[in-house]
Amino acid sequence: MNVAIIKYNAGNIYSVVHALKRLGIEPDVTDNANDIGKADCVIFPGQGEATKTMNYLRANKLDKVITNLRQPVLGICIGMQLMCTYSEEGETSCLGIFDTKVLHFTPEKQEQKIPHMGWDTLTNISHPLFNGIDEGAFVYFIHSYFVPLNPFTIATNDYILPFSAALAKDNFWATQFHPEKSGIVGERILKNFLDYSQKCSNGHV
């Protein structure tokens, strides 16, 4: 299977490459619109700042490339946030795939540290992305901005307030946490996405 990872000015992209290699997949890290378009599935990962990364995507015309994708797409962390309509981080408009905003966490108590960093639970899971994953499983989060609950929410976490741990709309799936850094649970989540992509590419979905 041909897996494309979108190359852009975000950090942590190679962690996803390593995670896929551990699952036996040799992904193509690329910013070439043609290669991305031809892939069986596309992963849009990263860690970074919203305005800088959005500006880069626009300058390299990757914004249109991503929104026009018809194959399965998995956004991770900043990737998921950029797939929303707007981010409070630098007050930038984003790709608009998920009709929801990205907001900054406002601590209510001193012990609520920002960023939300570390292992936290997945709750209210309801999507094939989480096949074989137990309610309450721990995954690794690291973020200061969050997506509120909305009609596309397929898993939640509660930190200061309940927010979206994952989103899905048609072929676009996304996680706020880092499956590539979430041990065995994360591996299963990535495998679920790859299995679904394989079925789509075989024409079984």
Binding site: Y14, H18, K21, R22, Y140, K181, S182, G183
Partner: peptide
């Protein structure tokens, strides 16, 4: 480490 271990 990055290639072989799946935690931060």
């Amino acid at each position: 480490v990055a290639a072989e271990i799946s935690i931060p």
